[in-house]
Design a protein around this nucleic acid. Structure first.
Lengths: 367, 367
DNA sequence: CTGAAAGCGCTTACAG
DNA sequence: CTGAAAGCGCTTACAG
């Protein structure tokens, strides 16, 4: 593979610039510029000549030069749920780590806190940033038509919008950066099925709220797989915890008390410190199996202590990097570089990262 | 988080440039340039004044502008094992997909084929590219002191060297982009142990060659976990296949014939099309469990057909992107942006990517 | 509809 | 040891 299409260029040794195009087309630099940037006010004839020259030379616009001359700086905002949440703490932490690189690359990012899962809160934040004239925003979305207006207004102001972790209504964002939560739930189901190796089982499902799309999707995927492929495994209806650690702990305790033959727990939501606290002191069947989401300090620890067997993680750092890349590309008016599906990472106690995810907050983790 | 350190700057609204620094320091632009770029020939006094001004203003060099003026283009080379290898086909395919973005970003990449796993071949390639004056090269390495000389020569010419997938002697590369293969093997061991759920088992291990460091590491990690935590599971000595599909098929066939109570197979190497062919027509115990490495068309298919249960994948696209990012940063003389461990992706049949990895070659996949 | 010119933040000769 | 000037590939007024 050669990255230069030198076959179509008389090989001058360097890449053609816009002046080359202008010269070959027989027009002025300014005119060539007008056509490549679609600024209008150009005679059809000139347009054609420039296009021909571009094709003949294999011209590719130098985005860096364009951005320099325009003094482009990428003004970005991330709208994240506020509160002491271990998962979003990792997002923030990663953004903080990046700050030096970001400023060298002319990007500034403001983190704006929104009331978690409140439609009104999100709507207000969206309205309030309209004046800030951000070039791009990444928002942890909600699936509601109520925010269509502010999103549309933002977009009309020229702000690029992407959704992060949790999607927005599909018409109002240019891209979604997050995992496929149905696949995540299915994966949990598969591995849990595996862990039973044909034995009968009974699984207590736990979730934050059915209104959270990600939670619902995970439960859905999980159920699908168990029902399809593991008829010996019974599913107990999920208990809702609002991701409250105390509640999660109580729920699990209760499930174990009521049905001592529970062989597994799957929490699609957060509040796992409560879950771990319960498991630490209660007796449970041998081969008991526990799956949770998001690697944060206490799930990391629980994995090592064998209270938890599997952590399905979203890798917020990867998601943030990707959001940044996509926002920049979109703002530059380029197309998005080829990217593969984001696939949730499965941690067992043998492939944990060498340094613990950066966050020091206690948490009411949510995913 | 605010990305600008405006607290230390008299907030002029825009980021300080080198002329600001020069003005504040009371020296010429050229002198300021000399000190920030360490070009020497500057009086101590001037150096200090410039440093003070930089600190006071919070100056950050604009890398894009620097690269433009210098007409920097990143001339990169990837040295990959030649041959019809499904894994490296994915690497090439991804590079091909990237080509348009790369040229817009002033990077060109040549793919140079080396004789697979031949020290002499690698050495020759390394010697032969010395004249090409690449800014950076990514090489699929070998652990041998024999290549120290050519690597050193390259480095002295100013070429940045990183190792990809398989490491080089640590002293001769600036970074290694690849997974931790011991952890990969341990993960395989853990999930295999899990799948046995306390049952006794007998595992046939398969590998390409013990000289391949990645293969050895995977076996090592795998053994560790099984021996530590799953005493009921017996490990049959690995058979070497040189990653030849026919050989792999034969080995597995033989193992199943000789010991019908084999409950699992783990191939740390490639040649899985042979493995799949064997599994397709032979009978084996219920709950038979099979783990292989690298998602390529036929392992993808085998996962869906239930001939294979787990594929541990390296995500060559992710590795290539990372290699590109790191090479550019190093060439620019910046430090490497914060990055997390590369953790191998675990595919079950429920989290497969929506489009099959791009490669059409038949293969003698190796990883 | 078209063009000439200054400027973005740097680097690179070149001249003292 | 120091500085003035041209140029990298673009965009943005400004003048026709």
């Amino acid at each position: 593979m050669k990255a230069s299409h030198t076959d179509t260029v008389r090989d001058s040794g360097r890449k053609p610039t816009l002046s080359d195009v202008a010269r070959v087309a027989g027009v002025s630099y300014a005119t060539a510029d007008r056509v490549i940037n679609d600024r209008g006010n150009v005679a059809q004839k000139s347009v054609r000549k420039v296009h021909d020259a571009m094709a003949a030379l294999g011209y590719v616009r130098n985005v860096a030069a364009a951005n320099l001359s325009r003094q482009r700086t990428y003004r970005l905002a991330f709208l994240l749920p506020k509160g002491r949440n271990a998962f979003f703490s990792r997002v923030r932490a990663h953004l903080d780590n990046l700050v030096e690189h970001l400023i060298a690359d002319q990007v500034s990012v403001d983190v704006i806190e929104i009331d978690a899962f409140e439609v009104a809160g999100l709507k207000n934040s969206l309205l309030s940033i309209a004046d800030a004239a951000y070039d791009g925003v990444a928002v942890v979305g909600l699936q509601t038509a109520e925010i269509a207006e502010p999103l549309k207004a933002l977009r009309e102001r020229g702000t690029v919008i992407v959704s992060l972790v949790s999607d927005l209504p599909v018409d109002y964002r240019a891209a979604y950066i997050g995992i496929n939560n149905i696949a995540a739930g299915r994966t949990a189901g598969r591995l849990l099925g595996l862990s039973h190796a044909g034995r009968a089982g009974r699984v207590q499902m736990v979730a934050g709220s059915l209104e959270a799309r990600d939670h619902e999707d995970r439960l859905h995927g999980f159920r699908e797989v168990i029902n399809e492929d593991y008829p010996n495994i019974e599913l107990l209806e999920p208990v809702m915890t609002r991701d409250d650690a105390g509640k999660v702990g109580a729920v699990v305790q209760q499930a174990l008390d009521a049905a001592p033959d529970v062989t597994a727990v799957y929490n699609v939501g957060a509040g796992n410190s409560g879950l771990v606290a319960t498991l630490e002191h209660c007796t449970r069947p041998e081969l008991f199996f526990c799956i949770v989401h998001e690697l944060v300090p206490h799930t990391h620890k629980a994995l090592l202590n064998k209270h938890v067997d599997l952590v399905i993680d979203q890798r917020p750092d990867v998601e943030v990097n990707r959001a940044l890349t996509i926002l920049k590309a979109l703002i530059d008016g380029r197309d998005i570089p080829p990217m593969q599906d984001l696939v949730p990472t499965i941690y067992v106690r043998d492939n944990l990262p060498s340094h613990i995810p950066d966050t020091t907050l206690t948490e009411t983790q949510r995913s």
